[in-house]
Write a protein that binds this DNA or RNA. Sequence first.
DNA 1: ATGCGGACCTGTTAGC
DNA 2: TGCTAACAGGTCCGCA
Length: 281
Amino acid sequence: MPELPEVETTKRGIAPHLLHQTVSSVVIRQRQLRWPITPEMMTELPGQILRSVDRRGKYLILAASKNEASGIDTGKNYLLIHLGMSGSLRLVPVDSPAGKHDHVDITMTTGIALRYTDPRRFGCMLWFAGDPLLHPLLRALGPEPLSDAFAPDYLRVQAAGRKVPVKSFIMDSKVVVGVGNIYANEALFMAGIDPRRAAGRISAQRYALLTERIKEVLAGAILMGGTTLRDFTGATGQPGYFKQSLAVYGRGGHPCLRCGTNLREIRITQRSTVFCPGCQS
DNA sequence: ATGCGGACCTGTTAGC
DNA sequence: TGCTAACAGGTCCGCA
């Protein structure tokens, strides 16, 4: 379900209802996610105040700390959340009936609960202390695609000598975060690059264009509120509206919207890959 | 270091 | 209509 725009949309949706709020209770119905949820989250988080909601790649980072009357900084704890393939976070009224895959509720004293749902359980919810950016899952991540660090010459430099298909290359979170299967397909189409081409054999000029297209497609999707595939919904349950503007993803065998050639669908490292043999080389 | 394939888990859809 | 197999938005890990 979630690629970067969906995660960003989720973040924007939930943040206003969480910031500066005190957690009143945590209910864990299923702790076996990608990694088990530690019971400490349930015992330590209630009573703490949520201080920030951030995103790094497709990870959401919630910071929490106690409200110390003494003024002594007791340090922050962090909740690292990934939505995996099928996860979502929504805001629901306290005591809303929980469905089969509603694994966690974090309820605020306002009566609003942050509900984590994830049928496939590929996501995670990790409770820890210490600098979140040094966390093993975040430490080695590449730059944010919408930041200036993702510069026109960045991909060319990183790709030197690499033989993987360019599609796998831009989906590698150590290279750049947040480019999932849908947007990798779309950005390569927009840049006119064959997804099978070896990463190390693409010109600086084409990489500059690809970089621009990646930024464009992600920023556009964020503006649209995320892609709707199957059942993606934002924090309050509203659907995203980006699907209608996908040019290649999910359109294998159909005519290219630009040149009319039938789009080809292949697999690159187990992932569905759609491209136009006429427009992409 | 790089690249590949398997692993995690459930739900939906395509095909017989 | 029913059964089975393939596939789905992610990414970590172990092995060659």
